[in-house]
Design a protein around this nucleic acid. Sequence first.
DNA 1: CGCGGGTTTGATGATGCTCAAGCCCGGTGG
DNA 2: CCACCGGGCTTGAGCATCATCAAACCCGCG
Lengths: 196, 196
Amino acid sequence: MSKELRLHFAKHVELTEQEFAFCQSFFQTKRVRKHTLLLQEGEVCKYFLFVASGCLRAYAMDRKGEEHIVHFAFESWWITDDSSFWTGAPAIYFIEALEDSELLMIDAPGMETLLQKCPKLERHFRILLTNHAIALDRRIAASLSLSAEENYLQLLKVYPQLAQRVSLKHISSYLGITPESLSRIRKRLAKRPQKS
Amino acid sequence: MSKELRLHFAKHVELTEQEFAFCQSFFQTKRVRKHTLLLQEGEVCKYFLFVASGCLRAYAMDRKGEEHIVHFAFESWWITDDSSFWTGAPAIYFIEALEDSELLMIDAPGMETLLQKCPKLERHFRILLTNHAIALDRRIAASLSLSAEENYLQLLKVYPQLAQRVSLKHISSYLGITPESLSRIRKRLAKRPQKS
DNA sequence: CGCGGGTTTGATGATGCTCAAGCCCGGTGG
DNA sequence: CCACCGGGCTTGAGCATCATCAAACCCGCG
């Protein structure tokens, strides 16, 4: 299960076997079944999670009790409630497994130590966060300038796996529209000339 | 003008006078007047900009020629087109000064060298990017769950300076609504019992 | 079978958009 | 000093998109 983590780190830094073994020692592994709640709003988020396999979602709940998905996390992505994890503040998101998943977990003191002892990873995470920021900017730009339908198509272009793996309800929540609207959008697209 | 940069770095790392002097040597200074375009879509974004004073905006232009503001940058914030700056791809945003501004500029090779020679800054930027990601997540969650009016109020709560310094047109563009709508929102708010 | 979650469909309505006109105010030139 | 212009903001009327509410449908599972 840590093979995925090894490959993941290798994207931006080179680690020797020993170095990686050292890093790995900071993580616990966990297998969870679909629907497992890993974090609740209001708790302190103890772990930074690496998804070795499976799929999670982070969502916020508004005053009316509606859920709004802020992130999905598939294989070899990280997920956490950043503000809670890094500062110890109460979490503002829920995190839930959407499929049976294998996770690697590191807590905040572990993360601090890891980064201190293995400063190469500072670089790794800086690059990761930069890419993350690029993706978030694109999502924001898309939501500002596109219609619901265009937004959906753009999402599918970036994450083609999504339509297969995630329910209509969750995709609509991520897009900020109702399930009914997304259903109608799909219907329209289905009966329209489409490429590929 | 580099005093602001010094204070900024001091938020997350400690640098000696020499270290800072070294860092500083990587930056050029630039004063620009309101309305100056610092980056155009399609160009390669050569610089990572630190705003010592003043205010800039980054915006995307859609097919219809409408502008959508992705970020504002006030004093001691950074701004760039990340995907272009880090990878050399064509920029997808425009960057423009909204006020006369003082900028510190570093190019990509400079940035790489700086981070290599002064690894403490990896940490600084990682923390900065984490905070940035937190802010972006909140903006996304807000746009998913709030009405235009609630969104505007939330924005004012986070950046009270905004209403004074930035035109209605630009704020509405950031919120993803038309100037007309924001004008009506303000009218409604003005004639309603308000706190403070 | 029949239950139940997720999805689809339909009818109606609200929020925010479009287009067009008018207003306010600061700047310029006569 | 005033008349005029122009940009930014406001206001109004009609419209599009998407939300809401309610019902029906589909299909896997007990």
